[in-house]
């Protein structure tokens, strides 16, 4: 498998005070739609800026299609179309002028530049706004222009930092559809903390927590790590009946029940109890309580749960991870194979 992006022990420490990226090893396969997931301040943007050469790593290295990135690595940046979180675009220019400027920066000849600008503006739905100055565009329109800007040089790798931030639902849907479309012919890296976006579009995911990559692999592998010991029942009936059902279900062995809202009961099956028999026992209580079963959901918000579980595990096992790494480094230094 060819890697579009590879980092090895990538570390960024600001002024010996703040560790933004901590010994990060990341591999993004070529052709993947890769979601870089993490809470605010986890180090996602810093990682992307290190890849672009906007920042210098304190230690480690980053490669894009096998080429090392750096402040003057023009060849690397020619392969990347970057969309920053809140694109700081020159407000005095019009969309066509801005894209033309970027085309010149990318050394595109005029005969190639001009038709591409027109088709890009059409693709992102800004053809009707070409006479407006950028400072007069809305957040969604600015993001769409930023997306067009990242595509000017037709790069094989797109790095979009929180592309759906601040967008209304229609603009968000448009952006996600576009990412899916782009992913058919390119490698796309999307940094976000919005789990719904990852669920919709990504096939690979990297979870960053406190500057460290705590999971990197296919989305299905992340979901597989999730303990599937809960489901929810969607019921129709009045609230008193639902509460009575919850009381009765609470007495069933190995089941913990919680009323989520007026219509939904969340059921957690304890370790050791088969889920099927627990569910069967619970369903027998529905009709006697004058309730009608509408639906049974299992594994909803899988990505969100898997993500939160990863973060919890990381926090709980932080010292173990530290010990392991220390041990590995010591062993490597001594030249002995790890046990």
């Amino acid at each position: 498998m060819t890697a579009a992006i590879r980092t090895e022990h990538l570390t960024k420490i600001y002024g010996n005070r703040l560790i933004a990226v901590n010994d990060m090893n990341l591999t993004v396969p070529e052709g993947a739609i890769f979601g870089l997931l993490g809470p605010n301040g986890a180090g996602k943007t810093t990682t992307l800026r290190l890849l672009l050469g906007l920042q210098r790593p304190t230690a480690g290295r980053a490669e894009v299609f096998g080429r090392p990135s750096g402040p003057n690595a023009v060849a690397v940046r020619r392969l990347i179309g970057y969309l920053p979180t809140h694109p700081n675009l020159p407000g005095n220019l019009r969309p066509v002028e801005y894209l033309d400027l970027l085309g010149k920066l990318c050394r595109l000849p005029r005969e190639e530049r001009k038709p591409r600008i027109a088709s890009l503006l059409r693709a992102v739905g800004l053809l009707g706004l070409t006479d407006q100055r950028i400072e007069n565009l809305s957040t969604g329109e600015t993001t769409r222009l930023g997306i067009a800007a990242s595509l000017v040089a037709d790069p094989p790798l797109l790095i979009w930092d929180e592309p759906t931030a601040g967008l209304d639902p229609a603009a968000r849907r448009f952006t996600l559809d576009l990412i899916r479309e782009m992913g058919k012919s390119r490698t796309v890296v999307v940094a976000t903390h919005i789990l719904g976006d990852i669920d919709h579009i990504c096939d690979h995911v990297g979870v960053v927590h406190e500057g460290q990559m705590i999971f990197c692999g296919p989305v299905r592998d992340m979901k597989r790590r999730l303990r599937r010991d809960d489901f929810s029942l969607e019921l129709e009936g009045n609230g008193d009946d639902l509460r009575r059902l919850a009381d009765q279900a609470g007495q069933v062995e190995g089941i913990a029940v919680r009323i989520q809202d007026e219509r939904t009961l969340t059921v957690e099956v304890c370790d050791g109890r088969p889920r099927a028999s627990a569910l069967a026992e619970l369903l027998q209580l529905v009709e006697p309580n004058h309730l009608t079963l509408q639906a049974v959901h299992s594994g909803q918000n899988e990505t969100e749960n898997a993500y939160l579980q990863l973060l919890q595990e990381d926090e709980a096992h932080g010292f173990q991870r530290f010990d392991f790494q220390t041990q590995r480094k010591v062993v490597a230094a001594e030249g002995n194979p790890p046990a």
Partner: peptide, 14 residues
């Protein structure tokens, strides 16, 4: 910052 987002992330040397 504008310079970084506008120029430096493109194929341009510093």
């Amino acid at each position: 910052d504008a310079m970084a987002d506008g120029f430096l992330c493109r194929p341009v040397t510093r």
